[in-house]
Write a protein that binds this DNA or RNA. Structure first.
Lengths: 152, 152
DNA sequence: ACCAGAAGTTTCAAACTTGAAACAACTGGA
DNA sequence: TCCAGTTGTTTCAAGTTTGAAACTTCTGGT
């Protein structure tokens, strides 16, 4: 017997499902206008940028950005064509490929990040109390702790 | 001068961005296995099903599911080919099209819904306290209240 | 009644994503 | 050493999403 969602859960689920649908779309649209790339491409660049050497293997980057291998391969091809990342062979294990953020990629991030952050603030944090921000951090961390949603 | 995200906001943002990326993917994959349709197609059927006459216009359905007109048009074409919805002209305003969930569509929902609900519970609610569920409902409703994310 | 503009929907071409299959390189046990 | 199995990545074909442009129908002002 399946247990249905109760009233409180439903009151959380309906707006949450709306958020996971509409939030990435809103971020996507803005980033496409400003940088010509989708939101998760931006996430890939930002993830590389957070590394000391701006470098990760394809597999690590796929895991960190919750991307399928196939999707990441296509994405990196696109980013490489625009000159924002480069691929390099891993000398120790020739199956692997390194991906490195280029200077041009870093410049793109530097240019786009301020407006992106402002957008995030507008969409998510502007109307939440400091208390709610802390609650959200707790809740979101708990949800992400689920194996299927994959720990970053 | 752009204000950067503070520590608490960052602690909320990182897992939240992970959720909006990974949660729809997880729901998608399961629904593709069980029903052969993506998650937002399921959302369209469920939205129609919640109506007394199982009917909405294309525009209303697009708004309720946060879909672009173009995307909805393609989606409804696919759902129509599988026999789960039908289009009908609106007699009062011939620009509009009604979309109605068929019996076959309702049967699909009835068949798939229990496992889908269980999945949602697994991914989101299983580890949250009742208090956190209420907090999440508040927070999510506030975020969805933002105009750009569109009220349902 | 006319007609400019608005509203609702679909079509178009290009881009992105998907799972499965193919491919290449490493690993460990016989 | 050999070779089955595993791991990391790319290719393939099919399906989905996108914004813009096209199309049809309605509305309000003249």
């Amino acid at each position: 017997m399946t247990e249905w969602l109760d009233e409180d859960e439903m009151a959380a689920w309906l707006p949450l499902i709306r958020i996971v649908q509409a939030l990435p779309q809103a971020l996507d649209r803005r980033l496409r206008e400003e940088a010509g790339i989708p939101h998760n491409y931006y996430g890939m660049l930002a993830t590389l940028s957070a590394r000391a050497d701006r470098t990760l293997t394809m597999g690590e980057l796929a895991r960190l950005t919750a991307s399928s291998p196939s999707r990441l391969s296509h994405a990196v091809t696109g980013l490489e064509q625009r000159g924002w990342v480069v691929r390099k062979q891993c000398p120790e294990d020739k199956r692997r490929q390194f991906v490195t953020l280029t200077d041009a990629g870093q410049e793109l991030l530097d240019r786009v990040a301020p407006s992106h952050v402002e957008h995030v603030r507008d969409l998510v944090f502007s109307r939440l109390s400091p208390e709610q921000v802390r609650q959200l951090a707790q809740i979101a961390a708990t949800i992400v702790g689920n194996d299927e949603l994959g720990e970053a």
